[in-house]
Design a protein around this nucleic acid. Structure first.
Length: 763
DNA sequence: CGGCTGGGCCAC
DNA sequence: AAACGTGGCCCAGCCG
C-alpha cells in the first residue's frame, strides 16, 4: 500500500516536471523568436560566430563546415539571408556556399573539357563511334547514365552512355533521353551499338558492370565481353578498401593512374537527387566521359597489380572465378522470384490476427506502450513490473525475455508479438511492394560486399528470409524450384584443411559427423549420441564454437553449463582431434607473421597492423603464464585469485590489446573456413550456370545462392539424370580430402521441400 | 522530413 | 573488462 502510494506520487511528480519543462521551453522559444526578429549587428554576429565555433559538441564535419563558412562570411563572400545567426543557419549558409562554389566548379569543368571528349548527337557522329569501335583492339571503357536506380523492370531508364577508346584516346558521350538538347533516339543508338555491346569478343571494362548490364538488358541488349569490372577486381585486390566508388578509388590511387585527385562525385557536382536527364549535355559529356576514361586507367592499374607474381592466385581468382561469376550474378538478378499473391494474403491475414490479439493482451498486461520500443519496454519491465535484471543491462532482447518468460508468463506474449511483427514488417508486408509488372521480385546479389568472399544480397535481401516468408515465392506453372545445398560444407572444409584424419573419418566412412565427434569427445558409446541426444546437440554447438572462436563464457551460456565444464568440453574435443587445435594455433602464428590469411583458392583476407598488437599480446601473455606457472591463459585474468600474482598494470596493458588481437584471430580462422566454403560455392555456381545455359531452351534459370545452397527454376518435367547433373555440378566444384555431399530438394513454393526420391516416386 | 545511431533480429 | 564469424534491414529516437 505504502509502496503503491510512493510510486504513484513519484510518477505524478515526474509528469508535472515534464510539463513544467515543456512550458518553459515553449516560453523560451517565443522569446528567442522575438529577439531574432531584430537584425544583428556585425559585432553581435561576430560574437555569435565565436560562440557557435567554440561549441565542443560540434561534430568534426560540422566544425570544418562552420569554419569555412565563417571565413567566407568574413571575406563577405556570403551573407546570411535571415537576420538571426545560429548553428543551423550557419550550416544552411554553408549549403548555399557549397552550391555557389559547385556552380563554379562545373563551369570550370566545362571550360576545360578536353578536345578528345565528344558529344555524339547525330548519325554521322555515331558512325564515327562505330568506326572507332571496329578498329579498337584494347578494352573500351563503358558506362551508362540513368535517371535513377530502379532499373530491373523498374521505373528508371538509360539516359545516355559513354565510351572510352583507349588506343586513339577518344572519349564520347551519347545522350539519348536528356530533357533538352539534340539527341539520337535510344532505339537507334542501341541498334547501331548492339553488335559491339553484345559481342563477347569485344572486350570492355566497366565499374559496377552489374548495373550497366541491367540497363542494357532493359534496352534489349545483353552486355557481353566484360573483361574487367573494376569495382569487383578492386575488391579482390583489397577487400578492406574504405569505398569502392569510382571517384574515391580514382582519388586514392590518383598518382598511380596519372590523374589529379580532384574527382567529384555526381552528388557533389550536381546535387543530390538531380536526375541525370536534367543535366545539360555539355556538363553530362565532361562528367560521363571522364568516368569511362578513369575506368580504363583503373583497369590498367589493377591488371598491373594482378600481374605481380605474389598475386598470381588472386589473379586467377579474379579472372577465372569472380569475373565469369558476374554473368551468373546478372542472370540471377534478372531471373527474380515469382510472388504468390494468394499466399501473401493468407499469411498476412493470419499474422495480423495474431498481432491484434497479442496487442490486446499486452496492453492489458503492460499498459498502452509501443512494444517495438526498447526504451519504453525497459521502463515497463524493469521499473513498473520490477522484473529482475537478468542481463545486467536492462536488456529487452530475445534471450533476456526468454529467461524472464520462464518466471513471468506474460513475457512470452512479447516474444510472440516480436515474431509476428518482425515477419510482417520485414517480409510479408515488404516483399509484395517490390513486385514488378512481371509478377516477380528482383533482389540484388552483391559480389564485393563481404570480407570473406561470400555473396551478400540486398533490396531485398533474399538470403535472410525466414522459412515462412520463403513460402510466398513459387515456381511458375509447370516449373519447380530446386534447392541444392552443400551438406555441412564448413565442417568438411575444416576436416580438409586441418588434416585431422579422425575428423575426416565420419565423412569417409559415411557416419554421422556430430554423433561420431560426440562419442569420441565425451568418450561414450556412439549409440548414446544419436539424433536428438544431448551429446550430439552439445557437439553441434561445440564445433560451431571452435570454428567461430567462441569464448568459454559464451559457450557455457549457450549450453547452460559452467565455464569450467565448457573449457573441459573443448579441451576434450581438442584431445580427440589434436590437429584442429594445432591448425588454429598455426593460423594465429601465420596471421601474426603475414597480417593476412588465404582460403583454399587463394582469396586473401588482410589484417593491417595486426602484427604490432599481436607481438605485445604474445609478450604479455607469456609474462602472465610465467607468473602463474601455467601453459594457457586463464579465462579471466581479473579473477581475485590472481590479485597478488598479476600486477594491475600488466593486466591493464594486456587488456588493451586483448580484444583487438583475439578478434583478428577469430576472424582469421573463420575467414579461411567460411571463405573456402564461399570459394567452393562460387565455383559450384559457375558449374550450375553452365548447366542452366545447356538447358536454357527448357527454361532453366539460376535464381539465387544462400551461402551453402543454390536455387534453380526448372521445368517440373526435369529428369533424374538432370538432377544428378545438378548434384555433379556442385560436388565437382572442388576436390577435398573428404567427399562433398549435396542434398537436392524440389519445391513448388520456396521452402516447402519434397525430397528427391519422393519427387520421382510421385512422378 | 532525411540522415544517423542503437537495439534488435533474420539468414548461413 | 568483455564475452561468436559473415551479412542486411527494421523501428524508435534524436538531430539539424
Amino acid at each position: 500500500m505504502n509502496q503503491q502510494q510512493t510510486f504513484d506520487f513519484g510518477w505524478g511528480e515526474m509528469l508535472d516536471k515534464e510539463k513544467e519543462v515543456k512550458a518553459k521551453e515553449a516560453v523560451e522559444k517565443v522569446v528567442k523568436k522575438k529577439k531574432a526578429a531584430k537584425p544583428m549587428t556585425r559585432e553581435e554576429m561576430l560574437t555569435k560566430w565565436k560562440e557557435i565555433l567554440s561549441n565542443p559538441k560540434n561534430s568534426a564535419k560540422d566544425q570544418e563546415r562552420l569554419k569555412e563558412t565563417f571565413e567566407a562570411w568574413k571575406a563577405e563572400e556570403i551573407f546570411p539571408q535571415t537576420p538571426k545567426l545560429s548553428k543551423a543557419e550557419a550550416l544552411r549558409m554553408y549549403a548555399r556556399l557549397a552550391e555557389m562554389r559547385k556552380g563554379e566548379k562545373l563551369r570550370k569543368m566545362v571550360e576545360e573539357t578536353p578536345d578528345n571528349y565528344h558529344l555524339i548527337q547525330n548519325e554521322e557522329q555515331l558512325d564515327w563511334v562505330c568506326e572507332l569501335w571496329d578498329e579498337e583492339q584494347e578494352a573500351v571503357g563503358l558506362d551508362t547514365e540513368t535517371d535513377g536506380l530502379d532499373i530491373v523492370h523498374g521505373s528508371n531508364k538509360m539516359v545516355g552512355l559513354s565510351i572510352s577508346f583507349p588506343t586513339k584516346d577518344q572519349h564520347v558521350y551519347i545522350p539519348v533521353r536528356h530533357d533538352e538538347g539534340v539527341q539520337l533516339s535510344p532505339e537507334y543508338v542501341m541498334q547501331k551499338l548492339k553488335r559491339f555491346i553484345a559481342d563477347k569478343h569485344k572486350p570492355k571494362v566497366l565499374h559496377n558492370a552489374r548495373f550497366d548490364a541491367h540497363v542494357f538488358s532493359m534496352e534489349g541488349v545483353r552486355l557481353r565481353g566484360i573483361k574487367m569490372d573494376t569495382m569487383i577486381a578492386m575488391w579482390v585486390l583489397n577487400e578492406n578498401e574504405a569505398s569502392y566508388r569510382l571517384k574515391d578509388l580514382a582519388n586514392k590511387y590518383a598518382k598511380f593512374l596519372g590523374v589529379k585527385a580532384e574527382n567529384d562525385t555526381f552528388d557533389q557536382l550536381f546535387g543530390k537527387n538531380t536526375p541525370f536527364n536534367q543535366v545539360g549535355l555539355k556538363y553530362a559529356l565532361v562528367y560521363a566521359a571522364k568516368d569511362t576514361a578513369l575506368t580504363v586507367k583503373l583497369a590498367n592499374f589493377i591488371d598491373q597489380q594482378l600481374n605481380r607474381k605474389e598475386l598470381k592466385k588472386i589473379r586467377s581468382l579474379y579472372y577465372e572465378l569472380e569475373n565469369p561469376l558476374l554473368d551468373v550474378c546478372i542472370d540471377m538478378e534478372e531471373a527474380g522470384f515469382l510472388l504468390n499473391h494468394d499466399k501473401v494474403d493468407s499469411i498476412r491475414e493470419e499474422l495480423y490476427k495474431d498481432k491484434e490479439e497479442l496487442e490486446a493482451k499486452l496492453i492489458a498486461e503492460f499498459g498502452d506502450i509501443n512494444f517495438n520500443s526498447p526504451q519504453q519496454l525497459q521502463e515497463v519491465l524493469y521499473d513498473v513490473k520490477k522484473y529482475p535484471d537478468v542481463s545486467g543491462k536492462r536488456s529487452t532482447d530475445k534471450q533476456t525475455l526468454k529467461k524472464l518468460a520462464e518466471q513471468f508468463k506474460p513475457v512470452q506474449l512479447l516474444l510472440d508479438y516480436r515474431k509476428a511483427t518482425k515477419l510482417l514488417s520485414s517480409f510479408i508486408d515488404k516483399l509484395p511492394v517490390l513486385v514488378k509488372s512481371t509478377g516477380r521480385v528482383y533482389g540484388q546479389f552483391v559480389q564485393n560486399a563481404t570480407a570473406t568472399g561470400r555473396f551478400a544480397s540486398k533490396e531485398p535481401n533474399l538470403q535472410q528470409l525466414p522459412p515462412k516468408a520463403r513460402t510466398i515465392f513459387k515456381a511458375p506453372n509447370g516449373f519447380v524450384i530446386i534447392g541444392s545445398d552443400f551438406s555441412q560444407i564448413e565442417p568438411r572444409v575444416l576436416a580438409h584443411i586441418t588434416g585431422d584424419e579422425e575428423l575426416r573419418k565420419p565423412y569417409k566412412e559415411g557416419y554421422d559427423l556430430y554423433s561420431t565427434l560426440a562419442a569420441r569427445t565425451f568418450k561414450v558409446p556412439i549409440e548414446e549420441c544419436g539424433d536428438g541426444s544431448k551429446y550430439r546437440k552439445m557437439m553441434k554447438v561445440g564445433l560451431l564454437a571452435v570454428m567461430y572462436g567462441t569464448s568459454m563464457f559464451t559457450l557455457a551460456n549457450q549450453l547452460e553449463i559452467t565455464v569450467e565444464e565448457a573449457a573441459k568440453f573443448i579441451d576434450d574435443f581438442y584431445d580427440a582431434y589434436p590437429k584442429v587445435e594445432e591448425w588454429i594455433r598455426s593460423i594465429h602464428q601465420q596471421v601474426k607473421r603475414d597480417e593476412y590469411v588465404e582460403t583454399m583458392f587463394g582469396r586473401k583476407r588482410r589484417f593491417p597492423n595486426h602484427k604490432q598488437y599481436a607481438e605485445v599480446y604474445d609478450e604479455l601473455a607469456a609474462e602472465i603464464c610465467r607468473r602463474l606457472g601455467t601453459k594457457r591463459l586463464p579465462s579471466n585474468i581479473w579473477d581475485n585469485e590472481f590479485k597478488d600474482v598479476l600486477p594491475y598494470d600488466l593486466k591493464r596493458r594486456f587488456q588493451n590489446v586483448k580484444g583487438k588481437v583475439e578478434r583478428v584471430r577469430r576472424q582469421a580462422v573463420n575467414a579461411i573456413i567460411q571463405g573456402s566454403a564461399a570459394d567452393i560455392m562460387k565455383r559450384a555456381m559457375l558449374n550450375l550456370s553452365e548447366l542452366a545455359y545447356k538447358y536454357a531452351d527448357e527454361g532453366w534459370k539460376v535464381l539465387a545462392t544462400v551461402h551453402d545452397e543454390a536455387l534453380l527454376e526448372v521445368p517440373a518435367t526435369i529428369t533424374k539424370e538432370q538432377t544428378e547433373e545438378i548434384e555433379a555440378a556442385m560436388t565437382g566444384a572442388a576436390t577435398l580430402e573428404v567427399p562433398l555431399k549435396v542434398d537436392v530438394a524440389f519445391m513448388r513454393e520456396w521452402g516447402n521441400e519434397t525430397k528427391k526420391n519422393e519427387w520421382f516416386a510421385a512422378a
